[in-house]
């Protein structure tokens, strides 16, 4: 593993008036590492994800990101053009509801190909070939390439959203409850696929989930949040087997009972 973090968060805080969304959050993400942010709803985990991915403006703190040229600027120093470029090339964002991340009235092929066209690919056949490759990698039949996502099942839509994000070989993916809206049987297949792709591509991932099972399956490290603060972080196996904070103990106990 590389010795420099790809992302570094320090003293991050987000306030809404007097209300604290999240505060005093610090952690690093290393290349190829999957970090799960867990906690119950209202714990600030989605606020945190949105702040880091610049979808939400932070109130204070630092967020540094390792660019491909190895510079490590705070994201606030980047222009809107640079940020948007990052978002469509180096980053991916997988929404809980695939409709938020897909163009529902545009074909599956164009959904996957959009990022390629956005960065200047101008060969129709090549864009189509790569879109078709990616559809197969996420286990969608290439024959569905000209179909609209509205005709896809929930699981297929989610896999399409993943393909759409990965086509530009991003280095950092944000995921917000990626299996949250799916049936249990469908969840397993999407999780399996995610695990395989993440390890094949060496992706860094920050995944927000309320489901410790998802965290255990995908992540190497885990951050537990409560009331906008980190209460515990560490290697996933350690935290799950030997939780030190009472709140984490409660969370872990609750899945064991289920």
């Amino acid at each position: 593993m590389n010795s420099e973090p790809i992302l570094s968060v320090r003293k991050l805080e987000k306030r809404y008036g007097n209300f604290i969304g999240c505060t005093d959050v610090s952690f690093d993400v290393w290349p190829g590492e999957v970090i799960a942010i867990v906690g119950e709803s209202g714990s600030g985990k989605t606020t945190l994800l949105n702040c880091i991915s610049t979808r939400l403006e932070r109130s204070s703190g630092e967020i540094r990101y390792r660019l491909r040229d190895r510079r490590f600027p705070d994201l606030a120093e980047l222009s809107e053009a640079e940020l948007r470029f990052l978002m469509r090339t180096d980053w991916g964002f997988v929404h809980q509801n695939p409709a938020d991340g897909l163009r529902m009235r545009v074909s599956a092929g164009a959904n996957v190909g959009e990022r390629l066209m956005a960065v200047g690919d101008r060969n129709y056949g090549e864009i189509r070939r790569r879109a078709s490759d990616w559809l197969e990698r996420v286990e969608i039949a290439a024959s569905r390439i000209d179909d609209m996502p509205v005709s896809f099942s929930g699981g297929m839509r989610q896999r399409l959203q993943i393909a759409r994000n990965l086509v530009t070989h991003p280095r950092l993916i944000f995921m917000d409850e990626p299996t949250g809206g799916l049936d249990v049987s469908v969840q397993a297949r999407v999780l399996d696929l995610l695990r395989m792709l993440v390890s094949d591509l060496g992706l860094s991932v920050i995944i927000v989930t309320h489901d410790l099972g998802v965290a255990r399956l995908l992540s190497q490290r885990i951050i537990v949040m409560k009331s906008g603060r980190i209460v515990e972080q560490g290697l996933t196996d350690r935290v799950m087997d030997d939780p030190s904070h009472p709140y984490t103990q409660l969370l872990v106990a609750s899945i064991l009972e289920n």
């Binding site: 164009a110 066209m117 101008r122 189509r128």
Partner: peptide, 22 residues
Amino acid sequence: RVMHALEEYGLVHVKLYEDIAQ
């Protein structure tokens, strides 16, 4: 206006792609 300012023209090609696909 933001799309022009940042030269974000991928969407135009998405439209052309859809034409050819259909």
